[in-house]
Amino acid sequence: MGEFFAMGGYAFFIWMAYGMAVLLIVLEIVAVRARCKRARHLAKHSDVHEGGAAGAQLKETV
């Protein structure tokens, strides 16, 4: 087990690389979930305009 984590003496480089990958992915997942929650909150407390979004849609093609 210790041999595995030692990575033949390259432990610092290997685990800094893999560790950053895990850290960034976890942070992105947390951030994007928080953004979804904020967006649902915003949508809940927005005045509803029947038929479309609040923004101008006149030039919309689809």
Binding site: K37, A39, A43, K44, S46, V48, A53
Partner: peptide, 25 residues
């Protein structure tokens, strides 16, 4: 993230207001 962006930019649309997850929020 796209789903969040759609909600952010469509907030106020009737279809968004009818979503179960928006009502429960």
């Amino acid at each position: 993230r796209l789903r969040a962006i759609i909600l952010e930019r469509e907030a106020g649309a009737a279809w968004v207001a009818r979503l179960a997850e928006v009502k429960e929020e």
